[in-house]
């Protein structure tokens, strides 16, 4: 049998099966959902071995003779103590350490993500900049200030200025959200267009 044709037929069937949920949940969707999750799991396993464990663990340990890597397995096994109440504390110890690490990483992430943006907000608001630049700067600064005041949790009720600023901030926020929504539409439509084209072609020469 022609392999390309088989692939095309399977792919077309998969597409229809997934789209069938738009009508209602049904046995065909359910079957393909389970196949998909099965494939994803299998894909995950093969990726996990070939791209994570083999190069980072097995090869250094069994190939390059770095035997202490076996301790990583011992530590990894601590996850599984969760199923025995007697030893479950070990898994919690491991988890807590990982949580501590992600907390520590956030202190770095905060600086790298937000400090450049903070610095980029220091914009001049007076002449002799050209007027359209000043207007742009003004909008940026006002948006930042008002949107940030919207997220105050304790001051809102005390001052009229804060309340006014917060509601302006919420309005600006909604414009921004609308813009994001609008800008995503075309990309999503392009995806669907291609799926439909793939189905309509009825021939196997096009990629999945």
């Amino acid at each position: 049998m022609n392999l390309d044709l088989a692939i095309w037929a399977l792919a077309a069937l998969s597409t229809l099966a997934i789209f069938s949920i738009l009508y209602r949940e049904n046995p065909v969707y359910r079957l393909f959902e389970h196949i998909f999750i099965g494939l994803a799991t299998g894909y995950g396993i093969s990726i996990l071995w070939t791209q994570v464990l083999l190069p980072n663990w097995w090869t250094p340990m069994a190939g390059d003779g770095k035997w202490p890597w076996i301790f990583a397995l011992v530590v990894g096994l601590m996850f599984y103590t969760i199923y025995t109440p007697r030893y479950a504390w070990m898994s919690r110890l491991l988890m807590a350490t990982l949580m501590g690490m992600s907390a520590g990483i956030f202190f770095q992430g905060f600086a790298r993500l937000y400090i450049p943006q903070l610095a980029a907000s220091f914009l001049p608001l007076v002449q002799p900049e050209p007027p359209y630049v000043l207007f742009r700067n003004l909008v940026i600064v006002v948006t930042i200030v008002t949107v940030m005041t919207y997220f105050f949790f304790s001051f809102e009720h005390r001052s009229k200025v804060v309340r006014g600023s917060a509601s302006l901030g919420r309005w600006l926020l909604m414009i921004a959200f609308g813009a994001i929504f609008g800008s995503t539409v075309m990309a999503r439509m392009a995806l669907l267009t291609y799926r439909i084209w793939y189905l309509l072609q009825g021939r196997p020469e096009i990629g999945t």
Binding site: A6, I7, W8, A9, L10, A11, A12, S14, T15, A17, I18, F19, I21, L22, F32, I35, F36, L39, A40, Y43, R188, M189, L191, L192, Y194, R195, Y198, T208
Partner: peptide, 17 residues
């Protein structure tokens, strides 16, 4: 190519609907 990729692409393209 016959199942995994088109299944993913189809779920993704449901977003258009």
């Amino acid at each position: 190519e016959g199942l995994y990729q088109p299944l993913g692409a189809s779920v993704f393209s449901i977003l258009a609907f």
